[in-house]
Simulated scan of single mutants.
Amino acid sequence: MTRQILVFLVRRLGMTVLLLLALSLLVYGLMFLAPGDIARNLLGTRNATPQALDQVRAQYHLDKPFLWQYTHWLSHALTGDFGTSIRTGAPVGRMMRERLGLTAAVSGLAFLLSVLAAVPAGVVAALHRGEWLDRGLVGWSVVGISAPGFAVGLILLYVFAVGLGWFPVYGTGSGFLDSLWHLVLPAVTLALGLGAFVVKLTRAAVARELDEDYVVFARSRGLGRARVLGIVLRNAAVPVLTSLALMVGYLFGGTLLAEVTFALPGLGALLEQSVLFKDFPVVQALTVVVAVLISLTALLADLAYLTVDPRIRNRMAR
């Protein structure tokens, strides 16, 4: 059994490496083809003479062919050196480290809020199918999934920050509690959409298991409601874990909008500024880091399947 798991891990890691290489090449190609001239952006309002443009392009290797630029970046990235920002001249690694904590705090708080609220809500909706409680929870989840994140953020900002004055309008605060208070609205903005997504998936997974024959058999043998529900939740955990793993990718996209809406200087705001400026090193580094995070989360989800569902372990052992 251990050998099968090891083979599975090696295969998944190999696929992940190939995926990351393909993704980095794709993003680098899209940035290379995007309209705009980095050399002119760097010169700003100064006189952009042909000589000055050529000098800037030579300094940042912008005069080299596409594959040479990509290979040069990749060879340094594999050693942990993501280069220097074209826009600010600062090391890309340091720029990301300075903003990573804020983005991680917003994403982590949103993830925690959505899981604590959405998973129990999905279970309750499945146990009360067809009743008013189920219809209310499903209706809320449809609204939550459909509502754009930036629109939800603006509404929360206008009502609870500008109107009622309960929360700060922008900024990160000072000190742990004050900083946490500044992040509540951005986190709730993300958690509403994420929670709605998880509610529907959890409800569907639990409802499907409740209709299985083993539930009727377990009840006929006299097992208590709590015991049967525990078996159902364990069997429904695989799709729920899948949804939680997918939330990582959704979180980053939503965090970008939330950081712009609430003027938070996190990785999302850094990505927006870098894309607009065509800052190759920063965009590439952020893309690869996020892709690695999502890939590792998916791998952990697969390992969690093996833990919670013995049927998958048995199939691998054959």
Rank of each mutant, 00 (worst) to 15 (best):
M1D: 07
R3Q: 12
L6V: 15
R12N: 01
G14F: 11
L18A: 15
L18G: 09
L19A: 13
L21I: 15
L26F: 14
Y28G: 01
L33I: 09
I38K: 05
G44W: 03
R46I: 00
R46T: 06
R46G: 12
P50I: 04
D54P: 00
V56A: 01
A58V: 04
H61G: 06
D63N: 15
D63H: 09
A77M: 05
A77G: 01
R87D: 00
R94W: 07
R94L: 13
R94M: 11
M96Y: 09
R97C: 09
R99H: 09
L100R: 03
L102W: 03
A105G: 03
G108F: 11
L116Q: 01
V119I: 09
L133I: 15
S141G: 02
S141E: 07
V143Y: 07
G149Y: 00
A151T: 07
A151Y: 07
L157S: 08
Y158F: 15
F160T: 03
L164R: 15
W166V: 12
Y170P: 01
T172R: 10
S174P: 00
D178I: 07
S179A: 12
L180E: 09
L180F: 14
V184Y: 14
L185E: 03
P186W: 14
V188K: 01
A191I: 00
G195P: 02
G195E: 02
V198Y: 05
A204Y: 01
A205I: 13
A205C: 12
A207H: 06
L210A: 03
V215S: 08
R219E: 15
R221F: 05
R225A: 14
A226I: 14
R227K: 04
R227D: 11
L233V: 04
R234N: 12
V238S: 04
V238C: 06
L241D: 02
S243I: 13
V248N: 08
G249I: 08
Y250E: 13
L251D: 00
F252P: 00
L256S: 05
L257V: 14
L257M: 14
A258Y: 02
T261N: 08
A263M: 13
L264N: 11
G266T: 04
L267S: 08
A269I: 02
L270H: 02
Q273M: 12
S274D: 00
L276R: 15
F280A: 04
P281R: 13
V288Q: 10
V290N: 06
V290C: 03
S295H: 01
L296R: 03
L296D: 05
L303H: 06
Y305T: 10
L306M: 07
T307Q: 13
P310I: 08
R311E: 09
N314S: 10
N314V: 14
N314E: 14
M316C: 06
